[in-house]
Structure formats: C-alpha cells, structure tokens
C-alpha cells in the first residue's frame, strides 16, 4: 500500500501541489536533501504529462500519484489514466501542437536525465511512470 496517495483534477494549477506533497513525503522518507529538487522536478514533469494526456483525451477521472516509502527506497508512481491503444500516445493536434509536442518530449527527457531508476508501463488502467530513489537509512524519520 502507498504511504500517501494523491488524487487531483487534471488541471495545471494542481501540479504544484503534487510537487510540494511529493517533496514533503520524500523528505520524511529519508530521501537525501540534495536529491529533493530532482524529486520535485521529476514528479512535476510526470504530473504535467499526465494532466496533458487527460485533457487531450478528455478523461474526466483525476490524476493519481502514489508515494511509497519502503525499507531502502522511495518510489513515486504517476498514472496517466490513458489505456494503451491507437491514438493514446499521439501528440496533440491543432494550433500550437508542435510546441506542445516539444514540451512533452522534453518532459520525458528531463525525467530520464534526472532519475536513474525509471519504469514506464502501460496497462488496461492506463500508463504509469514509476520513479524510485534510494533512501539513506540514517536520515529516516529525523525530527
């Protein structure tokens, strides 16, 4: 079971909230302070991508972020809610599509550049980006 689960409406203004929550939970889990900026950025990128896919595909359900603290690692899963299928991964159409496409590609580039342990899966409930960071045991639950 996830330590903290966050559900938010697929709106750009809520991505910041997801970043703040993820960074707070990661800090408490013992993720190194020096890495927290990366956690914040990576989860923001994954949520931005999920919000974009939800809106593009007119998915009403919220974006799901699962933050899971384990013995020696901390992981974040962000679901995009878009089941694999034709058109699901295509870029947005219409005005500004080039820029939106560039941004989406850069988002994934940032995640893969930042996080060593990234897994992207697709399933009947949609795609998921899972990112994992090591936890330094000494730092766990410091007050």
């Amino acid at each position: 079971m996830a330590t903290v689960e966050l559900l938010f409406s697929a709106l750009p203004e809520h991505v910041r909230t997801a970043r703040l929550v993820a960074a707070a939970v990661a800090r408490r889990a013992g993720v190194d302070e020096a890495v927290l900026d990366e956690v914040r950025l990576a989860v923001g990128e994954a949520c931005t991508r999920a919000v974009g896919l939800h809106r593009m595909n007119e998915v009403d359900q919220p974006v799901l972020v699962r933050l899971t603290e384990e013995e020696k690692k901390f992981s974040i899963e962000v679901g995009d809610g878009i089941p694999a299928g034709p058109g699901a991964s295509g870029g947005p159409a219409g005005a500004g599509a080039d820029e939106a496409d560039d941004e989406s590609r850069m988002g994934l580039a940032v995640i893969s550049g930042l996080v060593d342990d990234v897994e992207v899966t697709t399933g009947p409930d949609g795609g998921t980006i899972r990112m994992t960071w090591p936890v330094s045991p000494a730092a766990v639950h410091q007050v």
Partner: peptide, 13 residues
Amino acid sequence: DFLDSTGLGVLVG
C-alpha cells in the same frame, strides 16, 4: 525558483 520542461518549451518557442 523552479523551471520545468514546459518553461523550457516556452523559451525554445
């Protein structure tokens, strides 16, 4: 304080 790929996209644009 914070910049993500959306911001990078805007700068490239």
